[in-house]
Amino acid sequence: MAGLRTRKLNIVDRALGKGRQEVVSQSAFAHLFSEFVQYSQARSITASELERRLEDAGVGIGVRILELASLRDGKTRRETRMLGILQYVHTTIWKALFGKSADALEKVVENEDEFMISEQEPLVNQYISVPAHLPNLNCAAFAAGIIRGALESAGFPAAVQAHTVAADAGGSRTVFLIKFAPEVLARERSLASA
């Protein structure tokens, strides 16, 4: 009897849930995120400090969503190549979080180890207006953190930065610049030659 009472249902015993169907209102998310941005802003002096805080918070989400998405897909093999994992992040993970794939995945021509994922209108930035005294701030640093977390836990350590880039047709888009660590590149080379 006592054994029954003390045995709390462990979190890994619970069902994973259906995923995609469950939704909440966007304003609930926007309010929560804006509150978090304000909280972080009060604790940081420069824009880059604020971005770093947002990014760090995103990393934990990236780690979890990678696991969740691959469990739901029933993926039994790891991605071992750079392009493979990038496509996975760009399509599957983006869909799991934001309901659509990211707008584009490109390679930086000059550098072998740099890639870009770009997004016309990131969900996290939808209700954020950048204050005049912090012109370089991009709150999509949070999403950059998610990318970094997912890549890191997949075994591809990388630095990810969110940049605001003026678009050709006016307006702006957000580009996530991904720079892989040297060991990832070295592994990629040895895999390519094998």
């Binding site: 849930g17 995923g19 995609r20 469950e22 939704v23 909440v24 209102s25 966007q26 304003s27 609930a28 998310f29 929560l32 995120f33 509150e35 978090f36 909280y39 972080s40 805080r53 760090d56 918070a57 995103g58 934990g60 989400i61 979890r64 969503i65 969740l68 799991a96 979080l97 934001f98 309901g99 969900l123």
Partner: peptide, 19 residues
Amino acid sequence: VEKVNAELFTLTYGAVVVQ
């Protein structure tokens, strides 16, 4: 209302609490 994935919301809240 416009909607977003509930898991994004849940995970974001978790990240906030952790921070």
